[in-house]
Design a protein around this nucleic acid. Structure first.
Lengths: 104, 104
DNA sequence: CCGTAATATAAGTCGATGCTTATGTGTTCG
DNA sequence: CGAACACATAAGCATCGACTTATATTACGG
């Protein structure tokens, strides 16, 4: 599934918090580390997972690497949610048809 | 976080497939089991996780328990996605302000 | 009633995963 | 150059989580 790595990336609370911070402001790894009670490698590993899911992208500036959330990243997730919310009216119609057959 | 169990519930491919089937049609556990290569307890455990995440609800009918997706269940997820997509224009504005200060 | 069917729960196993420390890679600066 | 810094990668470890089999619970049917 296309959206599988996205769901998996966002399932971890720490990683989701990293993404949320990067949605508000571009940041390098050191800035990102402050505020989370985990090591720098842990942050880097989370960033790799988010990058593989297409949720963040990076920009090198000398020794620093600045991360930011990818605006397109949430599109597959938004589409998935939209598709499944659209199914509801169809389900209601199906129920109505079934009920109509039951009570003539 | 409120949406944590939702993300975690949808992170597993099998469980997400269960939810997707239940979005299209109400089904009991035995019907649900056919089509997945896992045991009945595995299905029940997935259903428990989905129920705890508020994604499905149940209706007992004799020995059978029919599950269906809860229409309100995806609302927190949709809201979360919406909130984070809304952040993008703000980020662009912030960038513009920064750029304006840099090049007078 | 009693056997069976539908589902849930318990207990155990094993791979996935999130963390750590240690080390590697690339960049700046004295 | 080389020391220090920013970050990535490697390796190990401990917990989590998805699955299994076994058993309990509830409901139906003969």
């Amino acid at each position: 599934m296309l959206e599988s790595p996205i769901f998996r990336a966002l399932a971890d609370p720490t990683r989701r918090a990293v993404f949320e911070r990067l949605s508000r402001q571009e940041m390098n790894v050191s800035e990102l580390k402050s505020g989370f009670g985990v090591s720098q490698p842990a942050i880097s590993q989370h960033l790799t997972a988010l990058k593989n899911a297409g949720l963040v992208c990076e920009r090198r500036e000398g020794r620093y690497i600045y991360y930011r959330s990818d605006p397109q990243g949430l599109a597959p997730l938004a589409d998935w949610v939209q598709r499944h919310r659209e199914l509801w009216p169809e389900r209601i119609e199906k129920l109505k048809r079934v009920l109509k057959e039951l009570e003539p």
